[in-house]
Design a protein around this nucleic acid. Sequence first.
DNA 1: GTGGCGTCC
DNA 2: CAGAGGGACGCCACT
Length: 699
Amino acid sequence: GLSNLPLARKLVTIRDDIELPLDFDALVPGKPDVARLAALYQRLGFKTWLEELEGSHAREGGHPVSEAGDELDSRLRGNDKSAKTRVDTVLDEKALDAMVARLSKAKLICLDTETDALDSMQAGLVGLVGLSFAVEAGHGWYVPVGHNYLGAPQQLPMDLVLSRLKALLQDEKKPKLGQHIKYDINVLSRYGIAVKGVAFDTMLESYVLDAAGWRHDMDSMAEQHLGHKTITFEDVAGKGKTQVSFAQVAVDKAAEYAAEDADITLRLHQVLYPKVAEVPALKNVLETIEMPLVPVLARVEQNGVLVDSAMLKRISHELGLRMEALQKECFKEAGGEFNLGSPLQLQQILYERLKLPVLAKTPKGQPSTAEDVLAQLAEQHQLPKLILDWRELSKLRSTYTESLPLAINPQTGRIHTSYAQAVAATGRLSSNDPNLQNIPVRTEEGRRIRQAFVAPAGRQLLSIDYSQIELRLMAHLSGDPRLTRAFKSGHDIHKATAAEVFGVPLENVSAEQRRAVKAINFGLIYGMSAFGLAKQLDVSRGEAQAYMDTFFARYEGVKAYMDRTRETAREQGYVETLFGRRLYLPNIRSKNAPLRQYAERTAINAPLQGTAADLIKLAMIELHAFLERDAPEVLMIMQVHDELVFEGPQRRLAELAPSLADRMCRVARLSVPLVADWGLGANWDAAHTSQGHASGPNQ
DNA sequence: GTGGCGTCC
DNA sequence: CAGAGGGACGCCACT
């Protein structure tokens, strides 16, 4: 490791396997040197315990450590053999044929597409401008096909280029590599090319290695892992108002940029993949979960979902009228006009003009106007309730009814979200442009928006979701016999646990008892404290503590598991899901209590949330393969963490529903049954609400 | 760009 | 004694 670097003046061990060649006492926390060195060590593949470092050296004095930094920096630069990529720009058929011949022989083809994003809100309206390839470090090809500025050189016709490449790109046996290759798959699919043999993605390699420890975009990774500063998109296309589309970028400049992207991706793969392969479980997560999921997500995104925009527009109009009426009432109650949407102005009205009591503050110390606070203030004054009502409508209108219609792709008439596979630290997906994972469901008003997610005529939607998956995983991972038995019994889990906790027969569990235990059950998953539970249940802290004590007395296995998890996190610096996906917790040993406690809660939650994410990803892979083979007319169209939504011909979908749910339950065999509930309907709300059919080992 | 808030699981 | 519920994304106001 670093210990054999000659520049060390003094070695300090900060973890068993890491020694930093520094005089730590010389470091001043918060100074750029600390961050700089942290970045340098990361670049060398070491994990720095920055918080630990900062926490333990919060003292006066010290001097910069630029010398050590400079020396490290220059060593790294010396190692950067990838400084410049040799570029071949393919402008004639002869060069194209030569390139295709070379690609065909390669063990691994790195590919990248350059596009002209016409309108980011209307995903899908992207035009292919060029393709780049690399098969050996230090070299890349660029095939321009869509540069259209005045005086642009003659380029090969796109049809010709794609037809020559098609067989290769669609060949399952020719392994492909990319950086965020789902994007390229989606672009090429619009040109009739179904990319197959997608073997590696550097973004996912980086994500599996350390989801939260560093960024997974190519520019950052090149700097960190190769010590190489890449040509950025802004370098070639400009920025701000003067930014041009890629089609307007000079072919020479574009070629340097694009060929480098393919080359650097290949070089990153050569660095990152061995690191993944070093840990068998991580290799497994990459190769059996993340990589097979890529084409599945691409398909789900391409499928899209049909949204009734006329319906949303009607709701929008109605919400507008009701908001206006509420606003008038608010002005009357407040004794003047103000912007209802401004927390600052509202805070002045409530606490300064109306002199209502300050029940809670924001993290910044300002009097809070959050929902739970306004709900309490509503007992003393009309205004808070009116604000709450207005806020509900305002939220629905601005976030959903006004924006979703704008996200409809004019070519397909459907909404195509984008799933981010390397964002959430725990392994979950996230959804954006637009986010389809936060469509309202809780209130009747909100569910009207779900009703606008529809199936085309003759088709229906099927919603299947895992029942209580995270709590089931708590039972499995902890091995707690009582919790396991409760799930095996098949009864309402909150009721069953309440019966255990309060020592009463199932049928004697009161609504209040069930509510309390349900709150604990959810709180468990998040590492909640007695304080949090008290707030949740609106009881005293003492009462909440008593509930928790009783709970843990009955579920000792759960308690032991939580203690064990915190302990292993402290010892190894990370926690794992059932499949070995890791989450590093750099603050787990911090002396800063809030930071450490936050890390401890994450340690409890991440294995549960992350294993659930692993399971549904496996289910998506499995179901996609099944549908492709046996029911191509049924489409997977959405994923919402523990729910999958399908669209298909009414009768066929109804026929398949039980077996799809059943397959979801069989992706893993746990010590408790995995159960999935499903429902059918003409719209998402109906499908979700009609859930009641269950599938699982007990059914 | 940040903070506050609110939607989902 | 402060802070005491995990993971996201998006909208608005404000700077």
